[in-house]
């Protein structure tokens, strides 16, 4: 039994039980199908993260955010006066995460493409777009670029889902899609 050495000393010469052979074959086949699905989705699927990313610094990145805010702000919201930014379709859109907010508020159009740049000013954050449930890790020093195409209209929240200190639960952002 399994607690004692194999009763057949040359155990590797014993034949394999048929059920086991069948199962190993099925498991291997399934493993291959699952492997193929990922490259398949890269070619035919519509939800893939790009591999575009750059090294950056909080200063460099916030400069880009500020330039965009200055150019495309359409109104202000909330007591803090958050700018709502409506960049043109196809443009580069910058969103930063910091303790404890996503900045600025974005206003996008349905069916249009935007190059969304994400980075953090301080600790690691988690970009979690709700209720879509799209989740991306945001890391200081790295600028990630994802081309997003909103496929529904409405008000979307960005929750932070990487623990970032005591007020982590207050870290929210917003994206409007018209």
């Amino acid at each position: 039994m399994s607690l004692t050495p194999p009763s057949e000393r040359l155990w590797w010469k014993e034949p394999i039980e048929r059920v086991e052979l069948l199962w190993v074959g099925l498991a291997l086949l399934w493993a291959l199908i699952m492997f193929v699905m990922m490259p398949y989705w890269h070619i035919y699927g519509k939800q893939n993260l790009s591999n575009e990313a750059y090294r950056t610094t909080p200063e460099q990145f916030s400069k880009k955010v500020d330039a965009m805010v200055e150019k495309y702000t359409v109104r202000k919201e909330t007591a803090r006066g958050y700018p709502v930014v409506a960049p043109p379709a196809g443009s580069d859109v910058y969103l930063l995460g910091r303790l404890w907010e996503w900045y600025p508020i974005l206003e996008l159009e349905k069916g249009k493409k935007y190059r969304l740049h994400l980075s953090s000013m301080d600790w690691q954050h988690g970009f979690s777009l709700q209720p879509e449930n799209i989740n991306v890790q945001v890391i200081p020093g790295y600028e990630m670029v994802i081309t997003v195409t909103p496929n529904k209209t409405g008000e979307f929240a960005i929750v932070c889902n990487e623990y970032c200190g005591i007020n982590h639960h207050q870290m929210l952002g917003r994206i409007y899609v018209k």
């Binding site: 519509k46 939800q47 879509e132 799209i134 994802i146 195409t149 496929n151």
Partner: peptide
């Protein structure tokens, strides 16, 4: 489920 969310590329 994945195929229903925003396009990402």
């Amino acid at each position: 489920y994945l195929s229903q969310v925003w396009g990402l590329s």
